[in-house]
Design a protein around this nucleic acid. Structure first.
Length: 489
DNA sequence: TCCGGAACCT
DNA sequence: AGGTTCCGGA
């Protein structure tokens, strides 16, 4: 699962001993974070058996640079979720050339290699922003995430609204596979749940977070969405759908990666964790999809580390509203709302109300830029202007943990209540009935915002069966306690 | 600055 | 397969 630093460092140039190039001298200083003993996640490497195995790929390298603080001036996360800016193209090219023993590497060639990723949908260009590219983490996650069943959704395959209506499937298994070479075929049919042989029940269904190496507890967690580091003005407090506020400390989890050694090459604070956090932050039923103990957590104590730049941290009650500014956490600006609605409809039809899983997404915002046009030459190396035309593709919001590991930590009330409500049964046991009403019963949209209609403004509807109502569960529990007291007295 | 085709390399 | 190199075009 993990690779040692030693193994890794041998790959700095040409695979090690056979290399005659000067990279030994030119290698950048060993990063402070790059301490012996930490490990690489397997998924960052191609299978050993494949040709070219263990040769670093450019996108790996990019991620690597993005992770290292000393290269923040060269390449850095910026702007939308997954978006990064090459601040010094020549330097990045030089470093890439060093790594690959290509002394004549330049940005033109490097960018050609990056363009090579477009077709694979690993990367895409952020139009209008110089030297700015964007990883497509989210699509990978979406497609890998069968509860959304996007990969099987006729809508998704045929309409592909996430990409402006292109008819080409945008989440090809190839793209996924190339992002996660170690995964089994991550296209259709991969179940996110280990149903196992046990009867359905609270423990009967477990999220297969191991399907996403970077989501499982043993893998690095990409917790800090680049967007949080972006140039947008922050005017907290914001209200976020599902009660999620990415500016809360812990919104992007650090400590939910218990096996992540300090100083990992892929430390959590630099990468988005599109799925784990997404699920755990969502109010039930979504948060319920994370099994207790895997929902991340204990990390709200990591004060201010994960981009928690506002002071609204502690104990903020969950509120279900829309982001108040068009930045960060983009979900694609096109028809995601419709997309989700369609997916939801499909699911509702397949699982009529009362019979199974009902789902939704948490479209959190629309990524845009905050400026336009070209930069002056003097801006070229310094900063990058944002372009409102920036094409942000589908994004999964990195919604973080609702830890159950440390009850002393403050939590969103929704997360707490959903646990009290024996969420696993509620959500996953097909005989228990769905938590969310069918899409048709949702209140009509009150906003032109294409996503807004999908966002429940209130906690679960009062129409829930009492046994499924979190507040009722509390009430019942309290009544039981009182009864016991009376008996004892 | 960015794009993608083409040939080529490992 | 995953680039690298070169190039013409926008």
């Amino acid at each position: 699962m993990w690779r040692s630093t030693t193994e890794v460092s041998n790959e700095w140039c040409c695979g090690g001993m056979d290399c005659n190039c000067v990279s030994d001298l030119l290698l950048p200083p060993v990063p402070a974070l790059w301490t012996p003993g930490f490990a690489f996640p397997d998924w960052a490497y191609k299978p050993e058996s494949s040709p070219g195995s263990r040769q670093i790929q450019l996108w790996h390298f990019i991620l690597e640079l993005l992770q290292k603080e000393e290269y923040q001036g060269v390449i850095a996360w910026q702007g939308d979720y997954g978006e990064f800016v090459i601040k010094d193209p020549d330097e990045v090219a030089r470093l890439w050339g060093i790594r690959k023993c290509k002394p004549h590497m330049n940005y033109d060639k490097l960018s050609r290699a990056l363009r090579y990723y477009y077709n694979k949908r690993i990367l895409h260009k952020t139009k209008g922003k110089r030297f700015t590219y964007k990883f497509n983490f989210s699509k990978v996650v979406l497609v890998n995430y069968p509860i959304l069943d996007m990969a099987n959704s006729p809508f998704f395959l045929a309409q592909n609204h996430f990409n402006g209506g292109s008819t080409a499937p945008d989440c090809s298994p190839e793209a996924i596979q190339s992002l996660f070479p170690r995964l089994p075929d991550s296209g259709r049919g991969t179940s996110l749940f280990d149903r196992g042989t046990t009867a359905p029940g609270p423990e009967g269904d477990k999220l297969r977070l191991d399907t996403f190496p970077f989501l499982s507890s043993g893998a690095p967690c990409y917790s800090k969405p680049p967007s949080l580091l972006g140039p947008y003005p922050r005017n907290p407090p914001f209200d976020y759908p599902w009660g999620f506020n990415p500016y809360l400390p812990g919104a992007f989890s650090l400590n939910n990666c218990p096996k992540l050694p300090p100083g990992s090459l892929y430390p959590s604070q630099f990468y988005p964790n599109p799925l784990q956090s997404s699920l755990s932050q969502l109010p039930h039923p979504f948060s319920s999809l994370i099994p207790p103990g895997e929902a991340g957590g204990g990390e709200r104590g990591a004060a201010g580390q994960t981009g928690g730049t506002n002071g609204t941290a502690g104990g903020q009650p969950a509120r279900l509203c829309l982001p108040s500014y068009p930045g960060t956490l983009s979900m694609g600006r096109t028809d995601l709302g419709n997309a989700v609605a369609l997916v939801e409809r499909e699911r509702v039809e397949a699982n009529p109300p009362g019979s199974g899983l009902s789902l939704g997404l948490a479209p959190v915002g629309l990524g845009t830029g905050n400026g336009a046009g070209r930069q002056s030459p003097t801006e070229r190396r310094g900063g990058v202007k944002q372009d409102p035309e920036s094409d942000s593709d589908l994004e999964i919001t990195d919604l973080s943990d609702c830890s159950s590991e440390n009850e002393n930590e403050h939590e969103f009330s929704i997360g707490k209540e959903s646990r009290l409500a024996n969420r696993s049964q509620i959500v996953l046991d097909g005989k228990k009935g769905s938590v969310l009403p069918p899409i048709s019963s949702l209140p009509p949209p009150v906003s032109p915002h294409p996503l807004k209609s999908l966002m429940p403004i209130t906690p679960p509807p009062p129409s829930l069966p009492p046994s499924l109502s979190p507040s009722m569960a509390l009430h019942e529990r309290h009544r039981e306690t009182e009864t016991l007291k009376m008996i004892h007295s």
